[in-house]
Design a protein around this nucleic acid. Sequence first.
DNA 1: AGTCGGATAGGTAATAAAAG
DNA 2: CTTTTATTACCTATCCGACT
Length: 349
Amino acid sequence: MAEYRQATVFDVAKEAGVSTATVSNVLNRRDVPLSEKTIRKVEEAAAKLGYRRNVMAASLSRRKTYEVGLLLPGFVGYYGLFAQQMERTAHKYGYHLSVFSTDMDSKVERRLLEKLLERRVDGLFCHGLAMSGDSARKVVNDGTPILFFNCWNELKHLAIGTVNLNVYQACVDAVVHLHEQGCRSFFYYGNKRAFATNEQRIHGFREGLRLTGGKHPADMIDVEDIAADDLAEWLAERSEDATPAGVMCFDDWKAFVCQNRLIEGGYDVPGRFKVVGINNEFVAGHSYPGITSFNVPYEHQADMSFRWMLTHLGEQAKLEAKGERPFSPPVAGGEVKIPLTLVERLSSR
DNA sequence: AGTCGGATAGGTAATAAAAG
DNA sequence: CTTTTATTACCTATCCGACT
């Protein structure tokens, strides 16, 4: 009884009556000169045997895995959608992507990181909240390049680059937009557990207030400090009936909660309060009133991140040979800011 | 010049051999 | 018998030499 195993280049070579070197050349090195006859023979043999490339052996041979890791805090909302896009982008560039979520637990983070390094990933993409400084330093010292996204702390100096959503500017724009829509008092409904990403929003909120005159009443609340049940009353007490108040929320889910609570409390949205979220998630477009939000260009952010990484890995020549447009990375260690675009809906009109 | 193949590297685990 | 050391299997990509 023959043992069942997948066909190798050796089997294909025997079937086609050529050497393994020729098989390899036909299958993945079309730049070396080969006769049509040989190509046909090898392709027919490979098809007949159901040959499938062994990427482990290939990685061993070329000392490069064409695998990259993506480390996220979790999979909810933006994270999951970004992961989905990164998977597509990785495949587009001929890479395999391993995605892990740390759940903001440093023990989990270290274990998952070790798994990725065991697999000899060529590079790592890390969310600013998903990785500690010690881990980042260790990885970089071991020679695995890291690219951060949505990272606003000093860690980014360890990376080959940082690709950040410009949530700061989005928040500036949010306040300006609310002001243009007639709001004369402003609130930020934040989430301090999100650390730096929350800080960015606060800075943007303050800058927005400054740009709109700096005289309007403004306050901040945090989801940690106030029960949703009390939210509407809290906001009502601190704003006036005469002019609408603007509430800029940490994200669309916070905006969803906020808006529902206001309506539940008998306050008109957008008449009495105008609500803005961030990320333009499903809930923003499908609640009523629709929630004004900021759209995330996932594909752009993923593509920018990948191209930057590939350039660092010395792969840009191969890409340009395949007809990809040239890519010039920003200054080493620099930061790219990806703009978010305002999506106006009924909640702020 | 145009094609093709032999030999080898590459990192680890399983197996074999040798030493204790 | 136990522990250490040496060899081999795994499979592919690539360099360089050989052949027409």
